[in-house]
Design a protein around this nucleic acid. Structure first.
Lengths: 327, 327
DNA sequence: GTGAAAGCGCTAACAA
DNA sequence: TTGTTAGCGCTTTCAC
């Protein structure tokens, strides 16, 4: 609404001075009389000045837009990231451009498109994507051409951070470890995991084996679920099961409930992701919730910090266990 | 990348001519020599010209951004809308600014913020929100001040469309009607519905009563679920149950399966929304899927059409039944 | 310490 | 039918 010129008029100085005072960038390095600075800030506050990002970036030949590449999964985790990004970006007056996919080819499309649009930064969350070879080169080129990048990742990948690239880590291994702890506390005697080879599985195994117990590891897939079900029915002691997603857990949950073997009694069951509706099963599913809202929020903050030459302090976010009836 | 000036240089004419040829707005009303027009289009194509929305809107004192107000529900339906909007907006080079909530106060916040940002249009999906009084006035003011609006709605509300306001309708009543049809085809003898007073419920009732049958209607809430469960267990004939959300349906599903009364046998069960994981229950849940991706996509298309003075042909989108094992 | 002025890419009024 | 020009809001030299 109010422009720099309005603020300048009210503060009784020129637009350039107002610009220098109000820009986050370099605002320290410019020599402005303290009195002027105060007058300007006061005027800006009074008028409710909000910078016009559009004009700001036009100058740099860039567009005030953040591109976000997210997996095209249907579940609400992705929505959490969307919400986190949106909240942080909205506050700062930056709009977003989302692209949903998980294939390498489409990541390339996203990057090419992004480069063509001259936007000012991207956020990438692609846990299933190898960020090597072609993909890595695209990212490097983008940064070299003046772009900024924040990676949302689920483990420490060998990805170099610098003043144009940062990352937000959600500690997936720790999530698996939490599940292990919970099952150990429930005094289970046998332990099972159904999961692909990913950090959360390693964390679980580490937790259980660290307590001197053994784990039987099954892969994803309906056949494996079937096998697991049979093993559980043939086993007479208390069993602890960790599934690497609520989806897998629900399959097993349904099967067990169907034969009257309610999860939470002899068989303890923990899922992962705390997907929508997992709380409404009966018995309700215990699960691990990843802080994806926070990671989206932080990713945008990091990006803005980099854009405006402010420091970025990396953080590792921890999942939490949502205890319900099945474990 | 390429600017109008680049295209002009290649086509051998001035930037204004290029602008006139390439702008969607008024492109018909300007008189350009056909030969020039072709040369310009060719040059633009060769250079891969993409308009810089930022500069385009700076001229108008607006920001090339679309604000989107969506309910803050956790389920994947909202994600569908996000994806639909994102895909259409990305194509056109417009970034988005999402705001997630369903409270009137926050809708006001959203509108005030939106007006302050001078963005070029908003999309609102707020099925639970009364768009009357204060809210309605905010919307009117926004449109009067040069903004555009598209409403994504689930029924025909009394909301006036004009050249600055359009709507996309997802026919919720029809969704309920689909459920009724399915249960009638399954030769159920008794019919139940658990739902609040919304279009999908009316559609269901209409369908069942239209076939000369009666419906027992229960409200939302755990107590009602309990009652419904008891009624179903005491009823000896085939029963058809429609729940107004998968969430409600899953509660009942779990209860029934827990006592060995598998949904899909004597008791047919249909949910609504086809939420993530409903397919993975055993027996898998039959549900109604609302075309929310499409509605988000269309909403953005409509908005862009209005912005660029192009006609908008309203459409009513229909839900579809996803038939699985429970009905 | 401060201000004047140019210019980012585009559109629209005006001139030719 | 086409071209010239001013100006949108901002940043950044360059003068003072």
């Amino acid at each position: 609404m109010a422009t720099l010129a309005d603020v300048a008029a009210l503060a009784g100085c020129s637009v350039s001075v107002v610009s220098r005072v109000l820009r986050p960038k370099d605002s320290g390095s410019d020599r402005i009389a303290p009195a002027t600075r105060d007058r300007v800030r006061e005027a800006a506050a009074k008028l409710g000045y909000r910078p016009n990002r559009t004009a700001e970036f036009l100058k740099y030949g860039r567009v005030p837009e953040i591109g976000v590449f997210l997996p095209r999964f249907d579940n609400s985790l992705i929505l959490d990231i969307v919400r986190g990004c949106s909240e942080a970006a909205r506050e700062a007056g930056f709009p977003l451009s989302f692209f949903f996919d998980q294939e390498v080819d489409n990541f390339s499309r996203f990057m090419h498109d992004t480069i063509g649009r001259k936007n000012c930064g991207i956020i990438t969350c692609a846990p299933e994507l190898e960020l090597a070879g072609e993909s890595f080169k695209l990212i490097s080129n983008y940064c070299d051409a003046g772009g900024f990048l924040v990676l949302i990742d689920n483990c420490e990948r060998e990805f170099v951070c610098n003043e144009r690239a940062a990352k937000v880590i959600v500690d997936d291994e720790y999530g698996g470890f939490l599940a292990a702890q919970r099952l150990l506390e429930s005094n289970c005697e046998k332990f099972f995991i159904q999961a692909p080879r990913r950090p959360r599985a390693y964390g679980f195994i580490k937790g259980i084996e660290g307590a001197g117990k053994e784990v039987i590891w099954l892969p994803k897939g309906d056949q494996a679920t079937e096998e697991l079900f049979t093993m559980l029915m043939n086993c007479s002691t208390t069993a602890g099961v960790f599934c690497s997603s609520d989806r897998l857990a629900i399959k097993l949950h349904s099967k067990l409930a169907g034969v009257g073997e309610m999860p939470g009694n002899r068989i303890k069951l923990i899922g992962y992701d705390d997907t929508y509706n997992s709380d409404v099963l009966s018995p309700a599913l215990t699960s691990i919730r990843q802080p994806f809202f926070e990671s989206g929020f932080l990713a945008v903050k990091y990006l803005l910090n980099m854009i405006y030459d402010q420091p970025v302090e990396p953080e590792i976010l921890k999942p939490v266990l949502i205890g319900r009836q099945t474990a």
